[in-house]
Design a protein around this nucleic acid. Structure first.
Length: 648
RNA sequence: GCCGCAAUGGCUCAGUGGGUAGAGCAAUUCAUUCGUAAUGAAUAGGUCGCCGGUUCGAGUCCGGCUUGCGGCUCCA
């Protein structure tokens, strides 16, 4: 007998070789139905894998992350099994579970193309296979046998993976006629999978390497109940409604033109109002934090970027130099503001008393992003960074870093961004030669970031190999409506550019010293920030409303005063109020064509007056809920006042 | 850049074995004064993304380009 410890600490005895499934059955038949995987001593296990010694157990259901993972991983295998039947000779790459579903990278063979229109047939085959209730069987296999087995089948991608594995740790999973190299765990059999939707097809480079063969990646998702699939698809539809590209068009915030060019946004009047509002907000905070606003031109001599080192790294992949009538004279559209700011620093001899020098600019930059990379406002070829460069002494780095962090937190709080992730990007330890700058300086910079995160209690994930070529950084990421991650705020320590531009200051010791540079952009870019702001607030509160987008409408004359009060509250945003003093018949105006064009109506009546809120209706969608009379404007006001009190 | 998909009036879309385009909303005009979101009638609006080919004839078939969408790679 072996002793099995449960999460609540209770211990029960089972015969040696018992399985998690048998344990679940012994508890309740209901649990046995719901359970999809288990954790044995902290490792996820198959339900059907024998347990041979004392262990602690945790049973995973579909609702658990680990349960879903096993479920979707088995689904990937199921899809592979179907593909193997439908496309003889198909070769398999990798097929993992992901955040929402799973994918499998496959090579259907020379001349064979799997298209969107083929997906229903694959789904049908998968469903057919689930009806067979094929058991999924785990086997341990030696490296030699694995190489032989997959080698014979011509599975060149699998043999490449096997060759990198350690002998004795290799397992395969088999269901029906399909066997895959896999660590597991998996469902006991394929009949658990009740609803299947293959989402899309995409190309994906083998092992993520652009230079290697591109495989066909098929994305799918499955559920243990048909209803769950339906709910998921509805959720996706809802998310699409919040897409900033859709809303941006509907609310006339921005547009693109084929004539102007790919990835070059045109800000419409309303979008510009919104953007300017954000810029003003940040400028006010920055003023309080001792930043000095500067302006620099949109182009710079090519020599500037040769000096900065950017030309060597990005020159050929960027917008190409602009020629002048002068022989050999070339200018680049500025891809970043830093070199210009370095030259401002150099314009005068600097003393330690000048530091920290904080130069800020809403600087528009141009980068020739790959065409397939462009995406609404989140990835464009011309965008405005809310940029600033802080020149300071080594001793000031940490303090300055901290103050930047404060600004980012003020912004995120004011705009109600709660679920952001922080990421510390450090060097790839195996590839240190691709970074510019000395080992010693890099270590200093990396440590400063890690320390500041610790001290401010920011829970940051450390990513190796994600650093910029000139220095490590701390990024703040936010998800869009469809769960894609975008980087917003960024703080980067740079020991490199001061070297390249030979920046100096005279210290109190009357010696020349090299300053440290901190790049930072709390919004990241105005374009991307507006995009994410739209997706985060749309459907909840239209706190980003701009003039002509909302009216405040009292339901009767009785509430005119309240409506006016709200209009005052919102006046920082120039939201117009519809209060008609002379004419009691307010309803008359509701049907005016002009009013119909206004996307939001803020309705106030008895209920609203009592709760200090407004009901929000969206043109075409009806009620989207009610909001407290705390708006974008008032939140910002609050934040700034709070800060000012601190400084007094 | 790579893989797959798409492009029809301002917007959302129909147009299914090729025979020279339809709807709803928006717009304009007239009527309507109706208290928590779509009053009625009429009018106007498209060389079907661009270029070329097949055909007696192409929105519809083929090729190229442009732009967009979902991914991959990339993101100073």
């Amino acid at each position: 007998m072996i002793k099995i410890t449960f999460p609540d600490g209770s211990v029960r005895e089972f015969p040696q070789g018992t399985t998690a499934m048998e344990i679940a059955v012994s508890i309740s038949s209901r649990l046995a139905q719901d359970v999809v995987a288990a954790s044995i001593d902290g490792n996820t296990w198959d339900l059907t894998r024998p347990i041979n010694q004392d262990a602690s157990i945790k049973l995973y259901k579909w609702d658990d992350e680990e349960g879903k993972h096993a479920f979707w991983h088995s689904s990937a295998h199921l899809m592979a099994e179907a593909l193997q039947e439908l496309y003889p000779g198909i070769k398999f790459g990798i097929g993992p579970a992901i955040e929402n579903g799973f994918y499998y990278d496959v090579d259907p063979g020379e001349g064979v193309v799997i298209k969107d229109s083929d997906l229903p047939a694959i789904e049908a085959k998968m469903l057919e296979l689930t009806e067979k209730k094929e058991p999924i069987v785990r086997r341990e296999i030696s490296k030699e046998n694995a190489m032989k087995m997959f080698g014979e089948r011509g599975e060149t991608y699998k043999t490449e993976l096997i060759s990198e594995l350690e002998d004795g740790t290799i397992t395969t999973y088999t269901q029906g006629a399909f066997t895959d190299l896999c660590r597991g765990p998996h469902l006991p059999n394929t009949s658990y999978i009740k609803a299947i939707k293959l989402m899309s097809i995409a190309g994906a480079y083998w092992r993520g390497d652009e230079k290697r063969r591109q495989l066909t990646r098929i994305y799918g998702i499955t559920f243990p109940k048909k209803k769950l699939l339906y709910e998921y698809l509805v959720l996706l539809e809802e998310a699409k409604k919040r897409d900033h590209r859709k809303i941006g068009k509907e609310l006339e915030l921005f547009t693109f033109s084929q004539q102007v060019g790919q990835g070059l946004p045109l800000w419409l009047p309303k979008g510009t109002q919104l953007r300017l509002k954000l810029e003003e907000f940040l400028k006010r905070i920055q003023k309080k934090y001792g930043y000095l606003q500067v302006m620099t031109p949109h182009i710079g001599n090519k020599m500037l970027y040769i000096t900065s080192g950017h030309y060597a790294k990005y020159g050929k992949d960027s917008f190409q130099p602009i020629q002048t009538p002068e022989e050999g004279e070339e200018f680049l559209l500025k891809p970043m503001n830093c070199p210009h700011h370095c030259e401002i620093y150099k314009a005068f001899p600097r003393s330690y008393k000048d530091l920290p020098l904080r130069l800020a600019e809403f600087g528009t930059v141009y980068r020739y992003e790959q065409s397939g990379e462009l995406h609404g406002l989140t990835r464009v070829r011309g965008f405005t960074q809310d940029d600033a460069h802080i020149f300071c002494t080594q001793e000031q780095v940490k303090g300055e870093f901290m103050r930047v962090m404060e600004i980012i937190q003020i912004i995120f709080r004011a705009l109600n961004f709660k679920d952001y992730e922080a990421q510390i990007s450090l060097r790839d330890p195996n590839n240190k030669e691709k970074y510019i700058g000395s080992e010693e300086n890099w270590n200093k910079a990396e440590n400063a970031i890690i320390e500041v995160c610790k001290e401010t209690g920011i829970n940051a994930r450390i990513e190796l190999g994600e650093a910029a070529f000139y220095g490590p950084k701390l990024d703040f990421m936010v998800k869009d409506a469809l769960g894609r991650r975008w980087q917003l705020g960024t703080i980067q320590v740079d020991y490199n550019l001061p070297e390249r531009f030979e920046l100096e200051y005279v210290g109190s010791d009357n010696q020349r010293h090299r300053p440290v540079m901190i790049h930072r952009a709390p919004f990241g870019s105005m374009e991307r920030f507006v995009a994410v702001l739209i997706e985060h607030t749309a459907g909840k509160f239209p706190i980003w409303l701009t003039p002509d987008q909302a009216v405040v409408l009292p339901i009767s004359e009785k509430f005119n005063d309240y409506a006016r009060q709200i209009a005052d509250e919102l006046s920082m945003q120039d939201i117009s109020v519809l209060v008609d003093d002379r004419n009691e018949k307010i309803g008359r105006k509701i049907r005016d064509n002009e009013l119909k064009r206004i996307p939001y109506m803020l309705i106030v009546g008895e209920k609203e007056a009592e709760n200090n809120e407004v009901s929000v209706r969206k043109q075409g969608e009806g009620d989207v809920g009610s909001m407290k009379i705390t708006t974008f404007a008032s939140l910002i006001k609050e934040e700034i006042e709070k800060q000012m009190n601190q400084w007094q």
